[in-house]
């Protein structure tokens, strides 16, 4: 871990300004991913801005009937929030499907969105990785790629986004609220927040330098059965091979997004028209144009089956 200087910020504006003032700085909240990467010198900030004292840890109703989740709300608290459990079950489910009890006590809402890929070539600094060292190549292409993306991939990168929470937020049409170093704020639809790798896989979100996430808002509840179906190699404490976030209404219509298949939570709104026709039709549309590797081609079939499992659970769970 490279040496850094450390400061505790007191307000969001102060934090954003500090970041702009100090090149090479990073915000730290839960720290569960940033410190992990700093130990390996994959992340090498020269200055850390501790944002835990910003007070962004409340969950409040919005005038539109939704919820505004502070950036620093811990995963455990968000999953356990009574309103989230009642109206946004898919979010609660996704959160508790991720990581471990300990990590969920540390990890924050904003930090979860900003998690970096768990691609083992990204994590091994001896290996080429266009995300870690732009231009060095991609170790996963032609290498061990069982866990990797099958759609939205590029010649430069086939990494996946590891978050479960983000998949649920995608299906909930969440909005990410930020503050920039100049004090201005903006709202970014979750659909636009994460990027596909293209030829710049090192750029993972649309956030600008020094821009700080302050909250995530959820629109008013849409009802329906909320399912998060996560498939992994062991029963818990593992990243998804494939995951499905689904909200299914009584009439079979609804929404679906996928985790574990792309560089961002994967949702194709057009595919949702197929929901009443079942998993195969939905999966077919969602994964049209997929480019799996030999090692992860099974994910195409698995997605279809996991959607099937989610839809079956939704049927049982209809409120």
């Amino acid at each position: 871990m490279k040496a850094f200087t450390f400061e505790r910020a007191r307000t969001p504006a102060e934090a954003a300004a500090a970041a702009a003032r100090t090149p090479g700085s990073r915000f730290i909240a839960g720290g569960t991913n940033l410190l992990d990467l700093m130990k390996l010198e994959i992340e090498t900030p020269t200055h850390l801005i501790d944002v835990n004292g910003l007070g962004l840890d409340q969950i409040e109703p919005t005038p539109e009937g939704g919820l505004r989740i502070g950036a620093l709300v811990r995963n455990t608290d968000l999953a356990a929030d009574e309103r989230v459990r009642r109206d946004y079950g898919v979010l609660s489910r996704a959160l508790v499907a991720g990581a471990s009890g300990q990590l969920r006590n540390m990890a924050t809402t904003a930090g979860n969105l900003l998690q970096r890929t768990r691609c083992p070539y990204f994590y091994d600094t001896n290996q080429p990785c266009n995300k870690r060292a732009p231009g060095s190549g991609c170790g996963a292409i032609g290498g061990f790629s069982r866990q990797h993306a099958v759609i939205g991939v590029s010649e430069a990168c086939i990494a996946t986004h590891p978050s479960d929470m983000a998949v649920a937020l995608r299906v909930l049409d969440a909005i990410v609220e930020t503050i920039r170093p100049d004090g201005s704020t903006r709202k970014i639809a979750i659909a636009d927040f994460h990027r596909l790798p293209g030829d710049q896989p090192q750029i993972e979100t649309v956030l600008e330098a020094g821009e700080l996430i302050t909250a995530v808002t959820l629109p008013k509840p849409v009802g329906g059965a909320h399912i998060y179906y996560k498939v992994r190699d062991r029963a818990s404490y593992a990243f998804a091979l494939v995951s499905v976030a689904a909200i299914v209404q009584r009439d079979g219509t609804g929404r679906v997004a996928l985790g574990g298949v792309a560089h961002k939570p994967w949702r194709v709104e057009a595919a949702e028209a197929e929901m009443p026709r079942g998993a195969q039709a939905v999966a077919g549309r969602l994964l049209a144009g997929a480019k799996p590797t030999e090692e992860n081609a099974f994910k195409l079939k698995l997605v279809e089956r996991a959607i099937g499992a989610a839809l079956a659970e939704a049927k049982e769970a209809q409120p």
Partner: peptide, 14 residues
């Protein structure tokens, strides 16, 4: 609350 003490800096625990 239980946490992984390896993933937090001591200075963050003021």
């Amino acid at each position: 609350r239980r946490i992984n003490s390896c993933l937090t800096l001591a200075v963050m625990q003021q």
